[in-house]
Design a protein around this nucleic acid. Structure first.
Lengths: 237, 237
DNA sequence: CGGACTGTTGAGAGATATCAATAAGCGTGG
DNA sequence: CCACGCTTATTGATATCTCTCAACAGTCCG
């Protein structure tokens, strides 16, 4: 995903190169935008934004990954997204409501590029292609949420299959024995992503392992011998 | 929501006036866009788009309302949205994937304005403010879906409260006894919206009625004496 | 007025949450 | 490098909730 920049005068701080939404801009344009960007750095466990905070800038992840989550009224932590290099958040808050609808926490060391509300809006008017990219990405997020909603409201098994597919796609590496998923977080995190109890996830995973559909290599890695069978569980059409 | 157009030469077919995403354009610009629009009409029960269909245009609702839903792998119908006058759909399919991720069915007589993929994209480049409006609206939809997901994955009571609030906001009229909601669809429809069994909804509604929190006037109207108490049920923070 | 669809209510089955106990991993400091 | 303690994960037993099946009531429409 990271685009190597070999142009003169461009150091690794020019994170804009990594960001898909700016990919249509040429180097000169990026250089113009550069001074508008503020850089931030966080360590694992830091909270970047609290739900309810006022946000005045869009945040683009330059390095590392974060989780975005809501604290529900029954005391759970519902994870909505895992964002990593090149992803952005805070865009909902650039127009009407300026209050963040979720908290964001660093899952590892994270570097961000922050672009103020005003600057970002100005960019959208100057470079319509940025808007188009954003609309595209928001459309993808919407599709994903719609899927999660329609799958997840009832059937837990489907939802587990679905999340395994998502993880395989984002964090999987091919191996001779199948696909190895490097999980972005612990079992508890996965349970919070799925909105189920930690214990239930444990049971389901044990069951899947007994059936040979997954193999738990360690707490952060899972081997999937046959992705097709997982897709069946997910009820993929 | 409907904007009265009193300019000369503008008949009621100039639906663009009703559409928030075009609200920043002046009359001359709208007139230019007008020839690009194709009009369609549907009657109650008509399916406007089937999940899986190839979509090549964005659809803006000029009159009436529709439901957008997915058929889940376990045979349910999961309703995702109710769109009405001024709302649009099909925008996810204008870039990458051209296949509709949901079906859309008319809940009553519906008139639409259809704008082709190519024309729509051209508009976005010509009028950046349209993109900004769309990003804003997509942000709202995302927030709503995130809410539905975090509320709904587990707690059914919260979800019922939440949907009552949504309905009160969209379809409610103030009355001396409280807020009267004119439901967009049947109990079965509401159950499909919530992703629960029809019978469960019945029971929950009976319970709420016993507690005096709602009053079922008839199958299409509900009275809410105290919205605050419903908000409590929704677990609103 | 009758039929079909929609809504309500009851009883039992199935699934997941919760509580509790045990086991396994992880980091820290000796 | 190992031992200790703390956190995370697994497994078991029970409780709670929602679904499903079934019967009945109500409503809409021809």
């Amino acid at each position: 995903m990271a685009v190597k920049c070999n142009c003169p005068g461009c150091n690794d701080k020019l994170c804009l190169h990594k960001v898909p939404i700016f990919s249509s801009l040429d180097h000169d344009e990026l250089v113009k935008i550069r001074p508008m960007i503020h850089h931030r750095e966080y360590k694992k466990g830091d909270t970047i934004i609290f739900e309810g905070d006022i946000i005045d800038s869009i945040v683009i992840i330059n390095e590392g990954s974060v989780k975005a989550y809501k604290n529900t009224s029954d005391g759970r932590e519902q994870i909505l997204y895992v964002f990593s290099e090149g992803d952005f958040f805070g865009e909902q808050n650039l127009f009407g409501n300026q209050v963040s609808t979720y908290s964001v926490e660093a899952l590892e060391k994270v570097k961000t590029c922050n672009l103020s509300r005003e600057m970002f809006q100005k960019l959208l008017y100057t470079y319509p292609e940025i808007s188009v990219k954003i609309i595209d990405e928001l459309g993808n997020r919407i599709s994903r949420l719609e899927n999660a909603l329609s799958i997840g409201v009832r059937n837990v098994d489907n939802r587990i299959g679905w999340i395994l597919l998502e993880f395989a796609d984002k964090y999987g590496t091919a191996d001779e024995a199948g696909i190895i998923i490097h999980l972005p977080f612990s079992r508890e995190g996965i349970a919070n992503y799925l909105g189920i109890a930690r214990e239930t996830l444990s049971r389901k995973f044990s069951q899947l392992e007994n059936e040979g559909l997954i193999k738990s290599l360690n707490n952060k890695e899972i081997l999937i011998p046959d992705l097709g069978k997982i897709a069946e569980i997910a009820g993929n059409s």
